[in-house]
Design a protein around this nucleic acid. Sequence first.
DNA 1: GAGCAAGTGGAACCACGTTCCGCTAAAAAC
DNA 2: GTTTTTAGCGGAACGTGGTTCCACTTGCTC
Lengths: 212, 212
Amino acid sequence: MFRLPSDGGNGAVADIDSESGRSTPRKRADARRNEATLLDAAAAAFVTSGVDAPVRDIAARAGVGVGTIYRHFPTRADLIVAVYRHQVEACAEAGPTLLADSSTPHAALAQWINLFVDFLVTKHGLAEALQSDDAAFQTLHAYFLDRLVPVCAQLLDAAAAAGEIRPDVTAFELLRGVGNLCIGAGEPRYDARRMVELLVAGLRQRQSAGPR
Amino acid sequence: MFRLPSDGGNGAVADIDSESGRSTPRKRADARRNEATLLDAAAAAFVTSGVDAPVRDIAARAGVGVGTIYRHFPTRADLIVAVYRHQVEACAEAGPTLLADSSTPHAALAQWINLFVDFLVTKHGLAEALQSDDAAFQTLHAYFLDRLVPVCAQLLDAAAAAGEIRPDVTAFELLRGVGNLCIGAGEPRYDARRMVELLVAGLRQRQSAGPR
DNA sequence: GAGCAAGTGGAACCACGTTCCGCTAAAAAC
DNA sequence: GTTTTTAGCGGAACGTGGTTCCACTTGCTC
């Protein structure tokens, strides 16, 4: 016992990174405080101005300089990922659960896609950012894909194995298509949910016969 | 005969605007030359850098100042529309032709949508611009909608009347959905055409029975 | 409390869209 | 052909937003 955890662990010299499980040198207290403040400020800014709220605005909301944002979140994508990580995780984890609880794999797939769509359409500008080829969104892209493609693939494979859907659509493609369809939700005359529904319906394979 | 048309009409005092049929005071020769040069330069720039090529680049290509671009094309949308007008017109006009020549309305619709998709996926960044809510793209939006929605509606109505598709999808919605799906074509792992195919398949109504 | 590295703020820089205005030269008037 | 008019031109200048950089501050350690 070189050091008592009397201050709730704040005096410790290293932390366990909740992401990778790696031991990392502990950050300064003000740095951790700023990071939390920034996350809140960003979340608030995203709600009112969408995910491409100006960096300066977010900094101002948090009461810090722009340099501080870049120190904690080198790219906008890092900030977005940090803000929405919990919700993406929840969505990812819902996949296997749905598969286990639903009557058919296709039903599970449809429900899971619904979750994803609900998430996307309520985050102004996120669907757009997800498909942007801007280098700044590279890691955003990567995170969503890493986390959701395997889940989607599992549901897709199950439905394909059950013969419910055509087997030639990849999880990547489907997710991208669904993401694309969510762009511009908010426009009154465009119902993204319905378009996704159509897409999922098109996935369905005629039960009557096999190929040809 | 106040003036002989010996210079091929260049000396005339007014022209007939090819768009509206209105008589407009004729523009100066250098202005017309610049406009044509700009259109070429823009078309070339769009091919290499996408439809959001920097204004300065286009001006440099054409060998004119940026002010000249804004004089001829007040917004980027005007420039884009001018560059692609012919192709959009051709697409619009193909609608009724396809409907007359195809075996079924649904076949005509599918073919027409194919035309539209082919157009979109070959214009880097156009699909993105079409869905952008940026005010600069307002008139682009309006032009595409004005020109294509009625055509699409005609095809859609015919297919719905024939009972081939569900009747509750609007032309606006479908076009927007298709446009959205074309975003990010070019990415090797994403086949926009196939996704659109899925969407159109989802439109199809089970022939077997009516509702319920 | 002294020393020091982590962390901070915000000025400065860059890229881009857009505006503005003095100048150029095409067309009109004579 | 010369003069006058004015449409049209160029590009400097400005606004905005992202990104970098570094002199200064401050939390942590000893």
